[in-house]
Design a binder for these strands. Structure first.
Length: 548
RNA sequence: GGCCCCGUCGUCUAGCGGUUAGGACACGGCCCUUUCAAGGCCGCGACACGGGUUCGAUUCCCGUCGGGGUCACCA
């Protein structure tokens, strides 16, 4: 059989964490390859020396591993290590007259772009005829040069698997850079060469690359490569503003919150700067623009002082979803449906089902807004349907990336029990918020003022009264496990003609400081009799009116 | 602004000339309930607009409007 195998690739640039858009692209490439028994390759596009870091490579690999999108090439391809290959090819194009050196400075280019803008047209660079003398002079000055492709001026078109026929008129063609002054190839050159050499047959990527494709097919023609099949995926948009979802959105949210904080608290930027230990000038310029971004550590400082929590920010990066406690299989399932569907009403699918059903003809053209509520619903369902082993592994992964959580003190058995008493949860962060009180040390319990007021003090301290009475009763329960506890609490309430809530709620506040926790019997069992009694007493001592 | 692409409930979408326009999430109501959830039942809710083509347009064509993407020595 001579049927050629299908080859796809995911080619991120290592400039930070993987974001959901990238994850979806990776997923679609992975699904397409798996569906057809082909190969899915991973390549690192690190031709931007200034922005690429090894740390980012590691993070990327970690995110991909977490998602479970395994690639087939054992050896990762790094473009930065393939310079000689690119250079040989570029020299060839130069000799053949298909590419040429250009000597404009950045300033000159900028001026040209400004001019284009003034004339209300797009910026196009066309080959300029340089005399032999001026070339000689530039070279003598060793003026830095880029290499541009002499793109044949003609109409172009290609067939896209999702968008159909895409055309570009000759008057839109421009000579783009293929080698930068630092000697590195540009993205356009490197993708084309590497895709060809790696045998990539299907290029599946975001729609923001649609117009780039004309550059790529021109390059393929110049180099004598076959043209792969192209499929451009719809862009993932923000639910609120309908714009492309990007990493900047978290920063944007922090900026807005900061503006509000300054206004509401009547504070100056200088004051803010001193609170968070950053320079006022830095904050000033960050607040004024929407192009500048704070780095991660700065973000944390600002968030702390303006009172923003991590969970107030939109999740954008795969890592954000991981830290908030989503299951990767739910994320992937949801992502698959952003721009693709199996053609019927099925939504919940396993990776195996998606692989079987996946097809490029089922991919949509229109951009899709990212609806976190629906994702959360997918996660809820995935969690409800998962085995306890799977949930335990998921929770432990969550705790590993949230080391400050008190649930890190729990044993596996305790985690399993917690998971089952929190059944119906949306994300692991919710489990944590609901059950964290059970894993606090007794003296770490903080009584929330609203809960104390509503549950303990209201109606002349009715709740507090219950606590005082119930302390003795708790000492008699035997054995100390949830069923007898629950039974005892119920009869305690009945004996006093009280609704269960009138008893369970004060207990809940006493042991966790909040009005929300897992079912009361299980909560008390988890904490243990000793701690329960201690917490009840401590609560009475600290919240009784006489104690202030 | 130039160029490219897109346009079914608030959101993700099914539909591929004749349907009571279907599902999911969200939302509203009821039920369940010791808190928070989860769950069950019911409900609200869409073919952007204007021309054609056709016996018949959500579906095909054109225009208008609206939205997005892109215009780097970033990928």
């Amino acid at each position: 059989m001579t049927q050629s195998t299908l080859v796809t690739r995911f080619a991120p640039s290592p400039t930070g964490f993987l974001h959901v858009g990238g994850a979806r692209t990776a997923l679609f490439n992975w699904l397409l390859a798996r569906k057809h028994g082909g190969r899915y390759l991973l390549r690192i596009e690190d031709t931007d020396l200034a922005r690429s870091t090894q740390q980012a490579v590691d993070q990327l690999l970690d995110d991909l591993r977490w998602l479970g999108l395994d690639h087939d090439n054992a050896e990762l391809v790094f473009q930065s290590r393939r310079l000689s290959v690119y250079n040989a090819l570029i020299e060839r194009l130069l000799v053949e007259g298909k590419a040429y050196k250009a000597y404009e400075t950045r300033e000159e280019l900028e001026a040209l772009q400004k001019q284009a803008e003034r004339e209300k047209r797009g910026f196009l660079y066309r080959r300029r005829d340089l005399s032999a003398e001026s070339i000689k002079q530039y070279e003598a000055e060793s003026r830095p040069a880029v290499v541009r492709l002499a793109m044949p001026v003609r109409d172009y078109s290609f067939g896209d698997e999702v968008l159909g026929e895409i055309k570009l008129q000759a008057n839109q063609v421009d000579d783009f850079v293929i080698r930068k002054t630092d000697g590195m190839p540009t993205y356009h050159f490197a993708v084309v060469v590497d895709d060809a050499e790696m045998g990539v047959t299907h290029v599946v990527r975001g729609q923001e690359h649609t117009l780039n494709t004309f550059k790529h097919i021109a390059l393929q023609a110049a180099l004598g490569y076959d043209r792969p099949v192209y499929a451009h995926l719809p862009v993932i948009l923000n639910k609120d503003d309908g714009k492309k979802m990007g990493k900047r959105d978290r920063d944007k949210k922090i900026r807005v919150a900061t503006h509000n904080w300054l206004k509401n608290k009547q504070q100056t930027v200088t004051q803010l700067a001193s609170y968070c230990g950053l320079s006022a000038g830095r904050l000033e310029s960050w607040l004024a623009t929407d192009t500048q971004q704070l780095d991660l550590s700065e973000q944390v400082l600002v968030m702390q002082t303006v009172g923003l929590r991590e969970s107030d920010l939109p999740e954008i990066l795969v890592n954000d979803f991981r830290r908030n406690g989503y299951l990767p299989e739910a994320l992937l399932n949801f992502l698959a449906l952003l721009g693709w569907n199996p053609g019927d009403n099925r939504e919940k699918m396993t990776m195996a089902e998606m692989t079987e059903l996946f097809d490029l003809t089922g991919v949509n053209k229109a951009g899709a807004k990212f609806d976190r509520d629906k994702l959360a619903a997918f996660n809820t369902a995935a969690a409800a349907g998962a085995t306890s082993d799977r949930l335990l592994a998921g929770l432990k992964d969550y705790l590993a990336v949230n080391p400050e959580s008190p649930l890190n003190r729990a044993s596996d058995d305790q985690l399993l029990a917690t998971l089952s008493m929190c059944a119906g949860f949306r994300i692991f962060r919710d489990v944590e918020e609901k059950a964290r009180g059970l894993f606090l040390h007794d003296e770490e319990v903080v009584y929330q003022p609203e809960a104390v007021e509503k549950v303990l003090r209201k109606n002349n301290g009715e709740g507090l009264g219950v606590l005082k009475l119930i302390h003795a009763m708790l000492e008699t329960i035997d054995p100390w496990s949830h069923e007898p506890i629950e039974q005892a609490v119920k009869s305690f309430a009945e004996n006093r003609q009280l609704g269960l809530g009138k008893v369970a709620q004060p207990l809940r506040v006493a042991i966790t400081g909040t009005s929300v926790s897992p079912p009361i019997g299980q909560s008390l069992e988890m904490i243990g009799r000793e701690s329960t009694l201690r917490r009840v007493q401590r609560c009475i001592d600290q919240t009784a009116p006489s104690a202030g």
